[in-house]
Write a protein that binds this DNA or RNA. Structure first.
Lengths: 252, 252
DNA sequence: ATGCATTTGTTCGTATGTATG
DNA sequence: GCATACATACGAACAAATGCA
């Protein structure tokens, strides 16, 4: 099937050659305007590079230079073989003492949901043991979950709970697959985030698949420790977030 | 071209076979020692698995078993197609209300320094104008700087200052190329960070060059707004940090 | 853009030593 | 002694990523 996109009569927008501004910057401004004033909406596919080049009467590379800039500024998202798309509004994941996944999502007027990938009892590796303050031989409950906002994946988390301190946490998670509810089930009625470390890396094949991102775009990775009211560590979590769909925000 | 690498006479380190300790643990200990005593330094590439296996006179799998353990313990970082590298100690960049580059670096007992790349007066683009609360025609002072810790690049920042509110900021930056000092020069004796947004993307060629990272590893990107005591915006900055050399840390 | 050499990642199969019942 | 299970060790082949010419 062939889709023919019809434009306004203005088939060739006039660019000012030999002016102070380079051609690609003029094209950049033109497209930025169209995104800004809503003539193309978030998620929409933009015209192809070829279409732009005929419209502006320039070489395709000149258009590409502008697209590159738009992509770098996060206004559009370019996907090889598919086209360029107006960036969708990003989900700001605000980190504070009381960070809860579902509250984060609801704040954006989106519907939170989750998909449990794994609930298992595993031995703690060095990093987990250190974070939870356990000996490295201790066993922990691992809870792996994909978090979605309006059905779109926004986070992939591996959460570790100390087994000794939280008896029955595995069963609680199976009954109520949210962290807040499960912790409440085993007597932790409140908890707060003590520290959050942020880094980034390329996703594994599985992560890319689950988060629905190309393997060429990095994921943000957070490590965080949650403690109960008494200051005892109740959870150590490592979560991935797809860029640039999600941003981490910190407000002191 | 063929590179022939000549080794010390010790072509085959003797391992104790049929002793109480397994081969792979002996290899683990040997490599750990070499990392510990500094014969290979953070960031250095280790010998290949093949080289190790001839050196120790064992199968490649046996070496891999040791490497796996080293990697799990965070002593080395293994990259497919490139090799294994001694882990560099990460610089935790703690974000709070009073985040200052030089203080961050000194906290790790490293010596902060900077390289000014550009000081210029430019028109504010849409994003900058919005962040600084200016009209998009306003002019701003752009300050581009590479921040180093013990001579290693850790941040590349583009800092924007509103020209109208901060007369003489460009000259101040030229005299004293640190943000805190320059702001003090123009009457802003204190400021605090209002908001920090974190995302990640692949570096441009220039960024990769300046931060000394491969183009295949993502950079963390922060956007932040600094305000003076009265709450007026005095700076909008966008900074890149090389992963995994730098982590962003939030402590509420 | 293409091909090639290098290096790590994965999966077979095989053999051996050790602990357990 | 014997059967079983498990971790260790070796060999070969192929897949995937990287860097270079």
């Amino acid at each position: 099937m062939v889709l023919v996109v019809l434009y306004e009569p203005v088939m060739s927008d006039s660019l000012a050659r030999q002016a102070g501004v380079t051609l690609w910057r003029q094209i950049l401004a033109a497209i930025e305007q169209e995104i800004g004033d809503g003539s193309v909406k978030p998620g929409d596919r933009l015209p192809t590079e070829a279409q732009y080049s005929t419209r502006f009467g320039v070489n395709r590379h000149t258009v590409r230079r502008a697209m590159e800039e738009l992509s770098r500024n996060g206004l559009i998202r370019v996907e090889q073989g598919r086209g360029a798309f107006v960036a969708e509004d990003v989900l700001d994941y605000t980190v504070g003492a009381r960070t809860r996944f579902s509250e984060q999502v609801r704040r954006h007027n989106k519907e939170p949901s989750g998909r449990v990938l794994r609930i298992a009892e595993v031995p703690a590796d060095k990093q987990v043991a250190a974070a939870l303050g356990l000996r490295s031989t201790s066993r922990v409950v691992l809870f792996e979950r994909l978090g979605l906002a309006d059905g779109r994946p926004v986070t992939l988390g591996r959460h570790h709970f100390p087994l000794v301190r939280l008896r029955g946490i595995a069963e609680a998670l199976r009954r109520q697959p949210t962290i807040t509810a499960a912790l409440a089930d085993v007597g932790v009625d409140d908890y707060r985030r003590q520290i959050t470390r942020v880094t980034a890396r390329m996703p594994t094949a599985m992560e890319a698949e689950l988060l629905q991102v190309p393997r060429t775009r990095p994921v943000l990775v957070t490590e965080n420790v949650n403690v109960d009211r008494g200051g005892a560590v109740v959870e150590f979590g490592v979560a991935c977030y797809p860029t640039p769909r999600v941003q981490i925000v910190f407000e002191p």
